[in-house]
Every structure is written in structure tokens, then in C-alpha cells.
Simulated scan of single mutants.
Amino acid sequence: MARVSQEHLDARRRQILDGAARCFARSGFHGTSMQDVLKEVGLSAGAVYRYFSGKEDIIAAITEETFAAIRDAFEEAGRVVPPPTPDVLLSSVLGRVLSGELHGLDRRTFAALAVQLWSETLRDRRLAAQLDEGYATMRTAWTGLVEAYRDAGLLDGDVVADHMARTMIATAQGFIVQEALFGDVRPEVLEDGLRGLMSMSPQKPS
């Protein structure tokens, strides 16, 4: 009997995850059954259970991939030397995150899936642990980025690096939520809006 190649196994696993992601984005985790997933991917139960023990296992795998995609976008942007200003940097991150590369989903569908995953971490400790790990990694990477701004003379010395890092992460997360709820979120909108906020100066007392 011929052995199944690793490429075939990887492609089949990818087929299952992508199909399940479409189902979850469309109907939510709790509104999607394993029968829905089987119908979406066009495979038998035996074929799917060869890779995953059940729906919760599939959700965990999609969560890991989605969080990793967002985390990797942040980390890659943070490695640019010299570091671009936050408006350019966050625009680049948002553009990559919403590019639709993961699971072959369009921008709004991927954003909706990400928001559902974040919500699911509130009830699932396994997913919450994945999110905590990814968030801690992003905070560390972006705190280093803020220190690079300071070293380049772009930042006042009294700003707490972690506070600024968390704010930049929250800004990107907020735009992902906007895309999920309302659509039409473009990287240039984020870049232009941040540039405007960064250009403001405190009013001098008269």
C-alpha cells in the first residue's frame, strides 16, 4: 500500500481548517456543527477525525494560526530598521493582517473570525492561554520598538515604553473590530488618522 506523502497530509489538514474557518466566520462557533464542517470541506467524518478529535480541537488550531498571523505581522513590522513612525507602522500591520492570506478569507470575514476568537477566549481556558502568550510576545516586541524610537530621539524620555506599546496594539485591534462590524477599513485610513493625532500640539496657556 502506497504511503501518503506529507504534502498530501498537510494539504488535507489545510483544507479542513480553511473550510471550518469559513463555517465559523459565517455562523459562529456555537452555530456550527461538525456536520456543517464536513459538508463544507467535502470529506467524511473519518477523514476529518484523522486530523482533529472534534470541533474544539479545530477551533484551537484555527485560534493558534490566527493569533500567530496577527503576532507575526506585529513582530515583522517591529524589526524594521530604522523604525517607521507609528502611523506608517500600524498601517503596514493592518494591511498585512487583513490581506486575506490566512484561510483564503476576505478582509471582513477574516476580521469577523478574529473577533469571534477573541470573544471565545473569555470562556475557553485553552484559547485564553494561547491569546495570553501571543499578547505577551507582542508587548515585548513592541516595547523594544518604542525604545528604538527613544534611542532615535523621536520620543520624550518620560513615556513608559510598555504603555505606548499597548496603545499601538490596541489601535490595530480596534481597527480589526471596526472591519468586522462595519467593513471598509483601509490601512491608509489608519495611517492618515494617526498622522493627524500625532500632529497635535498641546495648547500653550495664554
Results as ranks from 00 to 15, higher is better:
D72P: 03
D72M: 04
A73G: 15
F74Y: 15
F74G: 05
F74Q: 05
E75W: 03
E75K: 02
E75F: 04
E75D: 07
E76G: 05
E76I: 13
E76A: 15
E76Y: 05
E76T: 14
A77K: 01
G78N: 03
R79W: 06
R79T: 07
R79D: 05
V81H: 13
P82E: 10
P82L: 08
P83R: 01
P84T: 03
P84A: 05
P86R: 01
P86T: 01
D87L: 06
D87E: 14
D87K: 05
V88K: 03
L89S: 06
L90K: 04
L90F: 08
L90N: 05
L90Q: 06
L90W: 08
L90C: 15
S91Q: 12
S91E: 14
V93F: 03
L94Q: 02
L94M: 08
R96C: 07
V97T: 07
L98K: 02
L98Y: 05
S99W: 14
G100E: 02
E101L: 11
L102E: 01
L102M: 10
H103C: 01
G104L: 09
G104M: 05
D106A: 08
R107F: 05
R107E: 10
R108A: 10
R108K: 13
F110G: 00
F110R: 01
F110A: 00
A112C: 03
L113P: 02
L113M: 05
A114G: 03
V115T: 06
V115N: 09
V115R: 11
L117W: 03
W118V: 03
W118F: 14
W118A: 04
W118Q: 11
S119V: 06
S119W: 08
S119Q: 09
E120C: 02
E120G: 03
T121W: 10
L122M: 08
R123A: 09
R123C: 06
D124S: 13
D124N: 15
D124V: 12
R126C: 09
L127F: 09
A128H: 09
A128L: 14
A129P: 01
A129D: 12
Q130S: 14
Q130N: 12
Q130G: 06
Q130D: 13
L131M: 11
L131G: 01
D132P: 01
D132E: 15
D132K: 15
E133Y: 00
Y135A: 14
Y135H: 12
M138K: 11
R139T: 12
R139S: 07
R139I: 12
